[in-house]
């Protein structure tokens, strides 16, 4: 069990090729930072518990020489108990600060006029396809083309059940709800081709509800719009 844990720790250290931890946009970078940051803070907890656990189990195990020992009663220790209240509280406060900052910035919202200027794209999810509609009215099914380096503002809406829009390299999920429009922003995507998918179970064809994302240069995007 511990071997598995250490092995994957090594994997995580060297494993910057894990999709989510190898972000291709500013939005995804902030999220990846939060994930790695919290991972290391949490490793403090894991390591502490594992060391105490291993030590106590080994040291106080039943052996023939300890057969007749009647352990002393310990009712508790108020100082120790306060210690393991205070330290976790401190760790959580450290975690909470960046979480609040990033969450405030990134949380998807029911449509309000976005103050940020950016490329607006309407996204419609329906069982089991994605329709992307650009500002000049150009539409394409299951393929999203966006320019690199810009702010991409997605207005998402579903025609039937709840779906969830997800491109792991570019950012987290945002649900696609029937009856109301949600706005989500992807900041500064990098050039490349990525796979997007539906992350909320939506019925029979859920697995196949994927789409392609192409992040291209600004000129190429302008060309694409007029194709």
């Amino acid at each position: 069990m511990k071997k598995v844990f250490l092995l994957s720790l090594v994997l995580l250290l060297t494993g910057c090729n894990i999709t989510v931890l190898d972000p291709k946009s500013e939005t995804a970078s902030e999220q990846a930072f939060l994930i790695t940051f919290s991972f290391w803070i949490m490793m403090i907890v894991v390591v502490t518990v594992f060391i105490l656990f291993a030590r106590f189990v080994w040291k106080y195990r039943y052996t023939n020489s300890r057969k007749h020992i009647l352990p002393k009663d310990v009712k508790g220790n108020i100082k120790l108990e306060i210690t393991w209240i205070i330290i976790p509280v401190l760790l959580l406060i450290i975690l909470a600060v960046p979480t609040l900052a990033i969450t405030y910035d990134q949380s998807p919202e029911w449509t309000k006029e976005s103050e940020d200027a950016g490329i607006e794209i309407d996204v419609t999810g329906k069982q089991f396809n994605w329709l992307f509609r650009h500002r000049n009215g150009k539409e394409e099914m299951d393929k999203l083309v966006i320019p690199e380096g810009e702010s991409i503002i997605l207005n998402l809406r579903s025609e039937d059940v709840i779906h969830s829009f997800w491109v792991p390299e570019l950012g987290g999920k945002v649900d696609v709800m029937p009856g109301k429009e949600l706005t989500y922003e992807i900041k500064h995507p990098q050039r490349g081709t990525y796979q997007g998918k539906c992350a909320e179970y939506c019925g029979l064809g859920h697995t196949d509800m994927t789409f392609q994302v192409e992040v291209v240069s600004t000129q190429a995007y302008a060309q694409y719009l007029h194709q």
Binding site: A28, Q31, L34, I35, S107, G171, A199
Partner: peptide
């Protein structure tokens, strides 16, 4: 880790 809502956008589902 999941409770950090912005990170959860990635973890979720």
């Amino acid at each position: 880790m999941l409770s950090l809502s912005a990170a959860d956008f990635q973890f979720h589902d």
